[in-house]
């Protein structure tokens, strides 16, 4: 297994957000974490990469328990994270945003250079000196993915990569994620509905009110419309 998460309980202050969340991702697999707004998708991701201080449970990445490591150590082991709200550095240019994400090449993992990312997202190549704050939502989404790729991760958590994007950009995003998969990356994406996720995912989990409610293949999920209707946005 590439990533094994089990018994994850997370809190924001007094509020208990995640209840014994667990999921697994195999080597080179694309897994979707589905759920409505507020179901606990982002908190799950943030807990895995060490950004929720108040949490318990186990996160095993490439066979090693990383649940007590600080976020930068987890990132340096090759577990990349692309946040939902993009969080690009608005004052920094495209090139500088990439520079922040840059890490040493990792043996056995695809190595990313700015040129390769410009090939993946040609729009970005045309605005290398533009500050992140002066870009459209779709361009910012490409930038935040590219920035994480610059760390040469072997696995990426993508938090709602299609959110708020024009259909044409969504297609481009799906192509890019498939390219990443071909490069051997393991990927977890979170989404509110099946439309985008079914294009690219092998398996899916459904989370609702902080608990995992379903686990199975995309085919199984499509064959069970009642589950889909109960837990997902249309």
């Amino acid at each position: 297994m590439k990533l094994e998460v089990s018994g994850l309980n997370s809190f924001y202050g007094q509020a208990h957000i995640l209840f014994d969340v667990g999921f697994e991702v195999g080597e080179g697999e694309v897994v979707a974490l589905l759920g409505r707004n507020g179901a606990g998708k982002s908190t799950s991701f943030r807990s895995v990469v060490g950004l929720v201080p108040n949490r318990s449970g186990k996160v095993v990445f490439e066979g090693e328990d990383v649940s007590r490591l600080p976020p930068y150590e987890i990132a340096r082991r090759g577990l990349g994270y692309v946040p939902e709200d993009r969080r690009i550095f608005t004052e920094l240019t495209v090139e500088e945003n990439f520079e922040v994400g840059r890490q040493e090449a990792r043996p056995g993992v695809a190595t990313w250079m700015p040129e390769r990312i410009y090939a993946l997202f040609p729009n970005l190549g045309e605005m290398r000196k533009r500050p992140g704050g002066h870009m459209s939502g779709g361009e910012q989404q490409m930038l935040t993915i590219g920035r994480t790729l610059m760390g040469n991760p072997s696995m990426v958590l993508l938090d709602e990569p299609s959110e708020g994007l024009a259909p044409k950009i969504v297609e481009q995003m799906a192509d890019a994620i498939m390219t990443m998969k071909k490069e051997g990356l393991s990927i977890v994406i979170s989404e509110q509905n099946l439309h985008f996720a079914k294009l690219i995912s092998d398996r899916a989990y459904i989370i609702e009110k902080g608990r995992i409610r379903f686990s199975g293949t995309i085919g199984e999920l499509e064959a069970n419309p009642e589950i889909r209707d109960a837990y997902l946005a249309v």
Binding site: V49, A75, E96, Q103, G151
Partner: peptide, 24 residues
């Protein structure tokens, strides 16, 4: 310099910088 770029990034969003593998 890379250091300077990291500093400017951290000025805006420290958490994101650490999520990208930088030891703050």
């Amino acid at each position: 310099t890379r250091w300077g770029v990291l500093v400017r990034a951290a000025t805006q969003d420290r958490e994101m910088v650490s999520s990208l593998g930088v030891n703050q």
